[in-house]
Design a protein around this nucleic acid. Structure first.
Length: 310
RNA sequence: CGCGGAGUAGAGCAGUGGUAGCUCGUCAGGCUCAUAACCUGAAGGUCGGUGGUUCGAUCCCGCCCUCCGCAA
């Protein structure tokens, strides 16, 4: 079997999933259809928005399936009609067994963490928020419990001490493309040799850190409850999306819902200060805010913000 | 027709029915390490676009363009 003989159905939604899809398409793999989220009204003015994966699929002329419900009879029938040998899911949603068990060779997932760590929806954010110095990406075969299947390939990636999640996301996305294509190559190779795909059960680890979906209320910075280092990690783990925020009182003026994109730990300070930049005291130490955004305003560095105070 | 904010000097913001200021930056000079330092001086704006009201509009009214927050 050649890579152009293997029929692949690809499931994914955001930008992170586009990279691997593109790698497959441009690498000459036989992607026969794409499954993605239904179009939704979004953005200012509630315009109908296509998912990033759908935009790309349309660009290259791939069939797009957008089921409201993954168990829907019509959708299952349509999916079957593509006669996939393999399904690949990247940043999609939970799949019912009837979907992931459908292809002859099964379904594998690209997950943006070193499994078994950071199972869940926001693995990249949590790794940075926890101050980890390393993360990675893993491909694994789907099974019932989410993000627990046997691992196929895994690759590690260092996290810089001041790096934010946006940067880690982009680097993991690039790394993921290689992981996905190599996983497919491996599967084809095993198929040709008539052997099982070698997989490894996820190791048992005592200290398992989860990576649940992050909501806005989880993003408020509690300066009084965190050390300067913790605030720093929290901010970069949420920057640029979904962004940490806080209500700040500066020179007696209250600013609500201020998004904070970058801070640097700095010398201790008891009071919020604007003398040497925008300094906010923490439970231990203090941070200097480097980049922020007030509602209705543009994102700006702290210096610009201070220039506008009056 | 989802709700809302905003377009004034390179940046961030004030302001007024009689053609505009602040902080920062820039440039020139001084001081000399204050780790986003200090002093002096200068340059730099058809106040988003377009109609209207007015003796006169950056400011009031209509339309257009652009940017942003919320919500999804």
């Amino acid at each position: 079997m050649n890579k152009c003989d293997l029929r692949i159905v690809y499931l994914g939604t955001p930008e992170f999933a586009v990279a691997s899809l593109r790698a497959l398409v441009e690498g000459g793999y036989n992607v026969v259809a794409v499954v993605t989220m239904p179009d939704k009204p979004a953005g200012r003015g509630h315009q109908l928005q296509f998912s990033d994966v759908k935009k790309y699929a349309l660009e290259v002329g791939l069939p797009v399936l957008q089921p409201e419900k993954l168990k829907d009879e019509a959708f299952i029938e349509e999916l079957r009609s593509y006669k996939a040998d393999l399904q690949i899911v990247v940043a999609f949603r939970m799949l019912p067994e009837i979907v992931w068990a459908m292809p002859r060779l099964g379904t594998f997932n690209l997950h943006a963490s070193l499994l078994p760590q950071y199972r869940g929806a926001a693995p990249i954010n949590w790794a940075v928020m926890n101050g980890d110095q390393e993360t990675g990406a893993t491909t694994f075969m789907l099974k019932h419990e989410i993000d627990t299947g046997n691992m196929i390939l895994q690759e590690r990636l260092p996290i810089g001490p001041d790096e934010n999640v946006g940067s880690v996301h982009d680097r993991l996305m690039a790394m993921g493309t290689g992981l996905v294509t190599r996983t497919v190559d491996l599967i084809i190779d095993c198929e040709n040799k008539g052997i099982e795909i070698p997989t490894t059960p996820q190791p048992e680890i005592a200290e398992l850190r989860p990576a649940p979906k992050i909501f806005k209320e989880d993003c408020e910075i509690r300066f009084d409850q965190k050390t300067a280092t913790e605030v720093h990690n929290f901010v970069r783990g949420l920057s640029p999306y979904p962004a940490a925020w806080a209500n700040l009182t500066i020179n007696g003026q209250l600013f609500e819902n201020v998004k904070i994109f970058a801070v640097a730990p700095t010398a201790n300070d008891q009071q919020p200060s604007t003398k040497n930049g925008l300094i906010i005291p923490c439970r231990e130490g203090a941070v200097r805010i480097l980049e922020l955004q007030v509602p209705g305003k543009k994102r700006m560095d702290a210096k610009a913000f201070l220039n506008g105070l009056h």
